[in-house]
Design a binder for these strands. Structure first.
Lengths: 292, 292
DNA sequence: GCACAAGAGTGCGTTATGTGAACAATACCG
DNA sequence: CGGTATTGTTCACATAACGCACTCTTGTGC
């Protein structure tokens, strides 16, 4: 792997096409966190049309509304002509509809992303357990997986109270300041730790957020050793969360399950005493149900 | 609109590129149900690279597993070279990872489809009401929208019992034999009815499924007039479902909400007497909360 | 009602992409 | 082990897609 462009010494076109017009700001970031990995991709192995099309889909996600052709063009850094071709393609394939001059996505786009939720199958199995735990504890319970430096929620049961901790499936939060995130980061193989710790941005979210790399490593080691994580208001003031890793019968990491608890309801000590055991029992039960 | 290819009388390439190698079987179907609409698209307004890339994403959804380059190529009807370029693009953009020779999607693909669930915003608002109804009735409640002739579930609260009616968000069922589907079809504007009734495939799912077009129209008229739909084992034996449309304050159709009831638990009459009023009360409450 | 502006659609030269075939590297099998 | 599939990678060429600049349409202000 990692080939060089040797043959064509004449071509001015550099390693990767310099296309990056207006899509700064929300860059997808690089695939692998172990090291820089910046270029490393042969331009002939890249289909920019596809990347642009996906960027259009994401644009709808970001702005969360119907858009005109020109808006899409501006939002994605495409020319109007280009945006038009992409939009018409999406319409033709049924992913979008044109309502007058406004384009909007159809539910068919769900077909693109759902393998992540359901293909794993694990979450279908885990679902009833999660629901049960939620109604037993009378708190919101959710399941998440790691995507780079974010946790993405893939399942969850909300416990409806005045303070509803509103987490939708597909929601994304920084891993460093969430209980699920820390559990998942801590479960990474040892050889990943250096690159991980070096690149993870410890963004401050509240006054409690751990932002010191040295302290963060220590926290992660503790989470790894004790097998669970409690995060007290580091993501959002008033919200405490406790999480444990979920593994299949073979011990492979599947994700993490957490209970979100408003701080007004109980403190860390109470959570560890009352919530943690039930949470651990739940993942044990789920694990036993997970084949392979 | 509907231009012809006049300029190039020499070109053998017909209206739409004849690309349709192996993607039969799971065709996206045509965008508009009102009439045939088959060709009708100028080839210059179509980005086949994008369509192929999306087809690759769907392939992962369909097969629900990791795949090698060759498998992807075969599954999507691409050449290996083409599949490789697409996969490498997906990896580079973070939508996929290459694990040895196996490719798999990352949770980032959720970013493509989630606008449909969350961008509407309505479902975030509806969620607590749905949860509440579910625990009050001790039955599974879900919300769905219409996509062509399918209903797609966008939210739901499962009531965990022995018989768990397992519906994941993103799940898709034929509209003609589901309560939500009938409510949504019946709510379509009158001018859509002819095309709709003409094209909808009344596939038989159980021995109870209504498959006669004339009877189906009558059923739909009744649903429209009474404002709710009860479907008894037409999708699956042993499953009854009752649904009502959800509208925002302005009366615009947002989706439908249904309660799924195993037939062993109660019959249609009981459902209409006990479940329907609570369901109607719930959508009234949600509607009042929905702006615009 | 006319001019003007902003957005939508079109033609064309240039460049990137798809195709198919050759090549390389493994896996498979007797 | 050596032959043979099978899969992954590279290449050359024909073609489809891109951006640009232009035209057409719609809607807005005066």
């Amino acid at each position: 792997m990692a080939k060089e462009v040797i043959e064509k010494e004449e071509t001015p076109g550099d390693v990767l096409p310099p296309r990056n017009p207006a899509r700064t700001g929300l860059m997808t970031a690089s695939p692998d966190w172990s090291d820089d990995e910046n270029g490393g991709l042969n331009p002939r192995d890249y289909v920019s049309s596809l990347a642009r099309g996906l960027e259009v889909l994401r644009a709808f996600n970001r702005t969360r509304r119907k858009m005109t052709l020109s808006e899409v063009a501006a939002e994605t850094g495409n020319t109007r002509a280009g945006a038009r071709r992409i939009l018409l393609t999406l319409v033709h394939e049924g992913y979008a509809v044109a309502d007058g001059k406004l384009f909007d996505l159809t539910p068919q786009v769900l077909e693109l992303g759902y393998s992540v939720l359901s293909s794993k199958g694990a979450w279908d199995i885990a679902r009833p357990f999660i629901d049960h735990l939620s109604s037993e504890l009378r708190e919101s319970v959710s399941a998440a997986v790691l995507d780079r430096f974010d946790v993405v929620y893939v399942s969850g049961a909300q416990y409806h109270r005045v303070i509803s901790v509103g987490i939708t499936v597909g929601a994304r939060f920084p891993a460093h300041c969430t209980a699920t995130g820390r559990v998942l980061l801590a479960a990474q193989p040892p050889e990943m730790w250096p690159g991980m710790l070096q690149h993870i941005p410890l963004t401050r979210m509240t006054e409690h957020t751990v932002t010191d790399p040295v302290e963060f490593r220590r926290v992660l080691e503790q989470v790894r050793d004790q097998g669970w994580s409690l995060v007290d208001q580091e993501l959002e003031t008033g919200l405490m969360s406790i999480a444990v890793p979920l593994r299949n019968s073979a011990g492979g990491l599947v994700g993490a399950i957490n209970v979100g608890i408003p701080t007004v309801r109980m403190g860390p000590a109470a959570a560890i005493e009352y919530v943690l055991p039930k949470l651990q029992e739940t993942v044990r039960n789920i694990s036993d149900s997970l084949k392979r």
